[in-house]
Nucleic acid binder design. Structure first.
Lengths: 212, 212, 212, 212
DNA sequence: AATGAATGAGTATTCATTCAT
DNA sequence: TATGAATGAATACTCATTCAT
């Protein structure tokens, strides 16, 4: 039987399913046939929406980054928010998108794709964050010499270190590291202690933590 | 024609070749047939030494980590070296092993394997480095609250940020980042400025830097 | 060039071809590549229809048994036939199916598959025959104490003894054995001499008998 | 380390091991490498004793048949035994050899080789049994028209029907069939009821019977 | 007699992609 | 837009056999 859907809808459905499988089993180990089986669509349908399997990878990454950028956009320009509040909002935005994309569920097999996402985050999102930091520096709340690179370093470290597919810390190991990372960030960025505590949610967010 | 070699030799030969190809084209895109063709051995020979393609991946990583650990071993226990000198020696050791394994040549396709190596480095090498840092702290040369996690953070960040397969900075972008990372490390670890300058070699080491 | 067929048709085509080859060369010595080459289809097509090489074996056996059962079905329930006539019809049905499946052409290499077929025949077909025998016993035409087991014994013996892949009797050896087997069956089942002469066709049926 | 053994011993050891594996996993699914691993011998050693894998199959069958023939030999010529006693002794001999060769342990995978053994039994052992039957007929104890073929039929039927790799009857199904087969044999061979009860041991011999 | 490294042909299976309907 | 049958190249892995020591 043939089910017709709104193309935009279909496209999103395929992307979501593909990402879910890519994160679970890795890009290489996910067959196109599996993606379409998951949504009860013919193999050919996939190729209506995407030129190739490689193609959907780009689409996924673009969708992910765009989603975050969309959420961030308004925040960044908001004159009523302090720099710290902006960063907080951004971290929440990222958390929301991560959860929407099931970013937390991925296994060691899905490292490859998570990898590419981090790279894009550094290239597209980090500069925006760095601008906000600079802005905060002008306001005297931040005190950091190299906002951009410092942000790059901590974003990369945080994303890798707390990637459940790469390192699997137990509950206390994880908490220790999150706390320390935040403390180091606060001192590096020259903000008051506790200013970055909101990052805790993002870093441990939605994660199932292995028992005590 | 049939060429028999010392098994230990053969094994190493296969590992070296496999790693070279994995870094160049990625694990998934390297066929076993290609590995053996490179050393003029029959495909069966590969399976005489390794249970599967997956199996050699583990062997490669183990060999790499073991190589570094071997080089480090004597350094770590040497009573005549200061903590800083030890770290410097370790960074050289790592550099040497990297060069021996052609670690610098890898392309974006080789991300997957580089990934696994970072994880192992953090698990196996970082603790040793952290011990040395603690030792240096006792001697009053270092001043850092959380040696282990701080080392983890900077090792991960450095390995990712300067991984040519993930980020391809141009010459000046790269230099800027290396310098800043070192500066941040020095301040985080509470050492005198310039103490970590030896890291520059490791971080840019042997790399072909694009343009300029 | 791409030739699309009715899936049911294709499936049958593959089964027929596979069986032909399995009987000729044996299951183990028949490559999937050979099967598809025989019908000018891509190797992928095979796997579109069957999960594995093992899978088609099951399909073949099921198809064979089902074919016979289909032919038998109407006969078994026919009120106008005597028990003897039913058995005769069944033996013809079996002969027809055997010929349709080229069952007679198989060589020593095809023993493995023939084996599995015998087992299924005993499990699925023999009980039906035994029922008919019991029915005939009530009518006073048969006189046998253990219809089921007796049928099992003679079916197994007949199928094995006259399996050209296992025993290759010459013409006279074969005839002797067929005649004697029938005579023993008649006495065992308590029927009049000659009642089972129709079995001769089935047992030697379509066989190329090695010259006198 | 290199262990030298009496060649005859080694040969037997290899044959035993090969048969054990062939019966368990089937000829096709048993690798030569596996056979040698089981007895801690190098691959090359296998080829010292046997020309090929096919070759050992013949050796196994020959050894099996020869073993039985050896045991039978003296019995067949013994003037002090009646025909019935001879058959009984033969059935015991066969049972002993079967047990020595673990004939009872084989699975569905080992059907292929069991098959070939049956064929050889019919060709080599059955004629001897038939001679004894004829002899017994002269003595008036047997009364059968076609000793050879009748023996063939019942030997084949018995071997197949009670082959645990082909049919897996439960305890009562098995007993029923054994009893009936014996009864039919007795009437076919014209011997007194109970004369063949010794066959029961051979037919169910050493078998692990599935619970009640 | 024994070793075990090396061979290499053989093969099942996967899977991205195409295309006629 | 959607289908799903068909494609066919790609590839990991097996295994009987050989051979130099």
């Amino acid at each position: 039987m043939r089910i017709t859907k709104d193309p935009e809808e279909r496209r999103k459905e395929i992307i979501q399913t593909a990402l879910k499988l890519f994160l679970k089993k890795g890009y290489a180990h996910t067959a196109v046939s599996e993606i379409v089986k998951n949504i009860n669509v013919a193999q050919g349908t996939f190729y209506h929406y995407f030129k190739s399997k490689e193609d959907i990878l780009d689409a996924i990454i673009e969708t992910y980054i765009t989603s975050i950028l969309d959420e961030i956009e308004t925040v960044a320009g908001d004159k009523n928010l302090t720099a710290l509040e902006k960063l907080e909002q951004i971290s929440y935005a990222q958390l929301r998108v991560n959860q929407r994309f099931n970013m937390n569920l991925h296994s060691i097999k899905g490292v490859d794709i998570h990898e590419r996402l981090i790279a894009q985050v550094v290239k597209k999102i980090v500069p925006i964050m760095a601008d906000i930091v600079s802005e905060g520096a002008k306001a005297g709340v931040f005190n950091v010499k190299y906002p951009l690179v410092a942000t790059e370093i901590f974003m990369v470290a945080g994303n890798m270190l707390f990637d459940p597919g790469i390192f699997n810390w137990n509950k206390s190991e994880l908490e220790t590291r999150v706390d320390i990372l935040i403390e180091l960030m606060e001192s590096t960025f020259g903000v008051r202690k506790g200013s970055f505590s909101f990052y805790k949610k993002l870093m441990t967010g939605g994660r199932e933590i292995k028992g005590e």
